[in-house]
């Protein structure tokens, strides 16, 4: 994977397998399940913070610390995302900016999909 070390990759894999955001403690416990010698809490904390800086994770406050979740759903998506983030200066025209739809916009689009008359969405090309 582009630009990730072995421990970072292992942490990402733990978070990709999880269904919900995980705290540092939860990631630590899952990493340490099959590991000898055990990793220290601060090591994992540093790794997760670095991944958040790279844009691979986002964090939200939970209790006294943070809960982390991946920004992409798999390694390939992460690689592509990092390419696009890193070279955001390039002249790119996106179909639509991915982040930034408020619930109202989504509701209006859903209404358009449901109510548009005439054209079938399943027309073969």
């Amino acid at each position: 994977m582009a630009g990730l070390g072995p421990l970072e990759t292992a942490a990402m894999e733990v978070l990709w397998r999880a269904d919900e955001p995980l705290s540092v403690r939860q990631v630590l416990d899952r990493l340490n399940q099959d590991r000898c010698p055990l990793l220290a809490y601060t090591t994992v904390m540093t790794v997760l913070a670095r991944l958040a800086d790279k844009g691979a994770l986002t964090r939200q406050p939970r209790g006294r610390g943070f809960a982390y979740r991946p920004t992409g759903s798999d390694p390939a998506a992460l690689a592509v995302r990092s390419v696009l983030t890193e070279h955001g200066d390039a002249a790119i025209v996106r179909f639509v900016e991915q982040v930034g739809a408020d619930p109202d916009a989504l509701r209006r689009l859903r209404r358009l999909v449901d109510n548009s008359p005439g054209d079938s969405p399943e027309t073969p090309p």
Partner: peptide, 19 residues
């Protein structure tokens, strides 16, 4: 191709995935 597929595509890209 009409409004519906375009609105559908916009929605597909914009709707946040489950994770």
């Amino acid at each position: 191709c009409g409004n519906r597929p375009l609105a559908g595509a916009l929605l597909r890209v914009l709707e946040p995935p489950s994770w």
